[in-house]
Design a protein around this nucleic acid. Structure first.
Lengths: 116, 116
DNA sequence: CCGTATCCTACGGGATACTG
DNA sequence: CAGTATCCCGTAGGATACGG
């Protein structure tokens, strides 16, 4: 039946939405992506500085999770001292328009609230 | 200085991003908006049914918060029995493209993970 | 139908200290 | 620099029951 097909499509959309919210969920992932993206590649300490308020524990944890989800890559350069760089994947860059729309919307929202 | 202007712009962008994440934050708001939007207006019970897993406590709480943030309106129709409908504001509809991109991205992500 | 009132707990996430 | 190890806490949010 057409109706069944339509329902399962809606259900899949809903699940996809939940997936996305899960992947980008929590307080830090989007800000981290935004930070790495704006410099294209970044070291641990640099990210820590540009994401205001994050602790090294949280950053380490989030980076690990995002690596598992193929959002970033971690590269170790065997220099002395060792240098480690994080880079967003092309895949992750597909999130950029979404993040930009979040920024735009936040600006708008701030205006809206001021007009109380 | 140009550099200061640039930095404060970046800071504002960052804050706007945090604002958005705050407003749409939590587990339920985006799914709720998506549910109401897809029908344009909805009653409490209908929303409850289409947002899988939510409890009435959570739904009531989220709706209240979203009303405060001018994302939805609550209209009471003095019939018997009384009918109450929730509607997204035009303002809220500016979130729709973002939500759609979340859905698209979720679909993509699922593929990506399957290819492990 | 449209919620509110309680109670309770898992866990996201902060603070601090420490290692290779 | 690039993290790990502990300890700890607030609160988002689940379960359940009830009321207008």
């Amino acid at each position: 039946m057409v109706r069944d097909i339509d329902q399962s499509t809606k259900a899949k959309e809903f699940d996809a939405l939940l997936d996305t919210l899960y992947v980008i969920g929590g307080k830090w992932k989007i800000p981290i992506i935004h930070a790495i993206c704006s410099a294209n590649r970044q070291r641990f300490r640099e990210i820590e500085r540009s994401v205001t308020g994050i602790t090294s524990r949280m950053l380490a944890r989030e980076l690990k999770e995002m690596e598992m989800n193929r959002l970033i890559t971690r590269t170790v350069y065997a220099e002395t001292p060792v240098r480690i760089e994080y880079e967003v994947t092309d895949y992750c860059k597909t999130l950029v328009p979404m993040i930009q729309s979040m920024i735009d919307w936040g600006m708008l929202h701030r205006q809206k609230i001021k007009e109380s």
